[in-house]
Design a protein around this nucleic acid. Sequence first.
DNA 1: AATGAATGAGTCTTCATTCAT
DNA 2: TATGAATGAAGACTCATTCAT
Lengths: 233, 233, 233, 233
Amino acid sequence: MSPSPFDHLASAHRRIADAHKQALNAHKARARGEGPTGSSPEIREKLIDAVDRLLAERQVSAITSRDIAREAGLSDGVLYNYFATKNDLVVAALVRRFDAQLTEFERGLPESGEGEVEENLVAYARAWRGLATTTMPTVVGLMSEPDLMHLFLEEIHDEGRGMQRAFDRIAGYLTAEQGLGRLGDFDVEAAVTTFVGSMAALALQGTMTGRAEVESGERVRAIIRTLLRGMGA
Amino acid sequence: MSPSPFDHLASAHRRIADAHKQALNAHKARARGEGPTGSSPEIREKLIDAVDRLLAERQVSAITSRDIAREAGLSDGVLYNYFATKNDLVVAALVRRFDAQLTEFERGLPESGEGEVEENLVAYARAWRGLATTTMPTVVGLMSEPDLMHLFLEEIHDEGRGMQRAFDRIAGYLTAEQGLGRLGDFDVEAAVTTFVGSMAALALQGTMTGRAEVESGERVRAIIRTLLRGMGA
Amino acid sequence: MSPSPFDHLASAHRRIADAHKQALNAHKARARGEGPTGSSPEIREKLIDAVDRLLAERQVSAITSRDIAREAGLSDGVLYNYFATKNDLVVAALVRRFDAQLTEFERGLPESGEGEVEENLVAYARAWRGLATTTMPTVVGLMSEPDLMHLFLEEIHDEGRGMQRAFDRIAGYLTAEQGLGRLGDFDVEAAVTTFVGSMAALALQGTMTGRAEVESGERVRAIIRTLLRGMGA
Amino acid sequence: MSPSPFDHLASAHRRIADAHKQALNAHKARARGEGPTGSSPEIREKLIDAVDRLLAERQVSAITSRDIAREAGLSDGVLYNYFATKNDLVVAALVRRFDAQLTEFERGLPESGEGEVEENLVAYARAWRGLATTTMPTVVGLMSEPDLMHLFLEEIHDEGRGMQRAFDRIAGYLTAEQGLGRLGDFDVEAAVTTFVGSMAALALQGTMTGRAEVESGERVRAIIRTLLRGMGA
DNA sequence: AATGAATGAGTCTTCATTCAT
DNA sequence: TATGAATGAAGACTCATTCAT
């Protein structure tokens, strides 16, 4: 039997789940391939740029759809011509931001075997501290927004673009130097944890207390030395 | 210094509306020479207890004034007889909670000179990882609430009750062991940063990935060993 | 292990269903027994009365939450102190309305064995036409609102309060008169369908065309006669 | 006559905003001496076809202007080159649909004097039940859209193309058979009302409860027999 | 002093319609 | 003449806070 035109009355008894209509709309729409129709790359970009700017000065949770429209110089509704959800737009901006920051992190990292190990580690540490400094506020803000976090992780995890990419890079360097005999025989995973943890702690202290770059820079070296030499007697 | 991306965490970027309201309230109250008038310590305690319980199971941002009233078995309005603001109550609970967790952290920490240094450090590390594990969700949640964060830091910084108390304790232990010759001649401040950063990173990884206690326990030891022996060749 | 305070971070990876938060709120709240807290019967009544009045002049779908507040002389938010959802309030009004209308229908219906059968059937028919007239616009409007329809049917079906109550009453009368030999040996179910259908059609014609009561009254009798005597040669 | 509860169905109780907008539009257009300017019959047809297809699977109220554009494979704006309003387009589709369904109803109806009367009536009844079944969802959906309903009725009533056309056909058959003495001397208008009401009730029951064709078919015959023989003793 | 009903600004999202290209 | 991006009003719902009782 072909779909009866009465179907929508007969299904008046739809199960309670129908109450979720609103929340499901985005998914339904996507399922029907009826996503947002906007197709002007400029506008799309304007929107992402706007969120990007807001992200630089506000918590994710403090960015309203109206804020975005104002910042982009557009009207309240445009957003929904380009993204199924405010969150989808925010995630797009988040991903772009994060990619840019990871790329910035990787720029100019020293290669194993070259230069002095301590200097190389300081370079790595400074880069990582920088990444942590820029990244942390956003990440922290994200943690209070499960929905957003979920979407973001989904987007970022796929292609090895996540934080893991930075971790792997560090682990790679350490392993390579071990292979060259320029570093000892330690547990690389544990070392990466100490390395990133220390720098993150430093970044957090620096930004919470407003310590100047310089002093923080000194401390990076002190930490690297401690990690290299160990605390043992 | 250019505007730090952490600004919105550190500098209480209130939403305009809230700022307005709050300012208005404060103003009104001041004009009338009034503050909260409640005077029953039991009720005050009931309110703080309620928030404490809610804090154990929810993000700060997910606790509504009504939730508090329900949990305390009191009516919606009492809160304002004892605190100027919902946030003031929450901060009171936060401070009490934090103090209790710090005290729990300090319980049973080994003394310098006793037992084996590695074992002692592992004990410290486990205690700190525990503190980080319990504390972090709340702290992270707090970071998304500039107003709250601001009030909390104001309250906690004053009397050396903050995280610094835990840091000092670790620093004290390390210095003492150095004095006894059971640890080498490293930069204690750097070592503390390393120590707390590593454990925080471990706590974060553990909770994000849901790793079992056991495995995480193993990793504590691996990290302590790395810290003791260093990564040098 | 007791519920970790980190749970809400660890569950950052919640499944996509979490996106439905908003829609689910009502259900969650109900599940926690944390329903709306309003408890002034007067206000509750005011709200239901307001919806009742609006229902008498508008389609369900044309009643906004603001309309309700205005009509009740209350502010926009009250509704949610008494009902989890606008729909819940509307259903409450709908149920009350429907019950009242059914009761009105049953009032003064003749008993089997008394008076003349034709007169009795006319009385039944008039009562039913009245019920259909009052009820139909609302029922029809409801059909376009699956959510509301679902809630309404759930509420109404439970206790035999639905339309079936009216049908049963008619069927009961017909069967009783058959038993007394005052009606022939027809298929009661078919007769009920005929009976209610005819009257509903009459009600619809009357209201769509604005025919006067009187004329419509004449037609009731004509229909009852036709039903009694049949169209056969 | 007191205000009928059906008023909001019959009398186009537009929402204020809509009325405003529409009035404004009409006014503007009139002032400029402009109407829809489109002149390609193919596009006009494409639009109507699209709505027709959507009407077969959705409530009127669930059809957005964008849906129509997508379904027609045209852009969002074209609609307004051919119709003053989305509603005007929908009405055009509605009218065409309704005409087609009436024509389908009339196809293959038995002639008076031929075959057996009961069989003929069953055939009429089945055809009418079919018409009701296909038509009702749309009609019901329409009733929640006063504006649309109003436009539709205006369009349909003019030229005797409305439901009346079907009623007349049935009345014609009954009168003819009466003339031939194959049916008794009943009030034809009343009989038509019973006839269409019974079948509509059957259609409604069938679609609400999802009863199978077969069973419903049986009931058609039971009803026709009841109508023929009457309920009298 | 406690109560809890009432308030209303603010949030995200939808969609008919306009208009520059 | 077709396009489709942009508009913005409107809708349901939340929640900190006030204030009459």
